[in-house]
Amino acid sequence: MSSSRALYIVDYGAGNLRSVQKAFEHVGVEAVVGCDPRAIANAPGLVLPGVGAFGAAMEQLNSKGLVESLLSRIEAGVPFLGVCLGLQVLFEQSEEDPGVRGFGLVQGDVRALPATVKVPHIGWNQAEVCACSDLFDDIPEGTAFYFVHGYAVVPRSPGDVLAMTDYAGVTFVSAVEADNVVGVQFHPEKSSTMGLRFYRNFARRAGLADRS
């Protein structure tokens, strides 16, 4: 079966996906935005962006029948990247909407940032990468990325943690990696040169970007 040569950016009505698409285009990678389960089944790589609330996102994903198609592709080993809320929905549940089940692909849950810090956490902050991953190739240690969020993921297994970030004394997990599934709390599409590099690295993983 021949695969499409474009990344598929999953649209479930949460936020502006054009900026994510544009960022991939900027690094020479074709990316299509849509919510077609058949396209998901053929894509060499999947990106799940998103801003908004956990419960509303899961409701949209379920009602569009996207959860099953995504899960079956992820189980098949297709490179998958969740961004911001797209990271959070990979977990089992979130304090934001108790009772709503997430994908459950990564064990653990999503919790509100503590009231001791200004919430939402907005701005440029450093990701301290604590595991070896091709996604941070050519990205110097301590590089800052752009964050906008009020909740953070808490993986149960330390082995799933890819990067940590310190925010005014509160340390949270800013990237996870479990086999072919990666999620980042920051927004690569808003993180200038280094964010674009991160997307290029993901596209390479999906076999879509040339080494240069």
């Binding site: 900026s19 544009k22 960022a23 752009y146 599409e189 993180s191 200038s192 040169t193 674009l196």
Partner: peptide, 8 residues
């Protein structure tokens, strides 16, 4: 701007 900028 959204087409050209990769910062907020």
């Amino acid at each position: 701007c959204a087409e050209e900028l990769f910062i907020p």
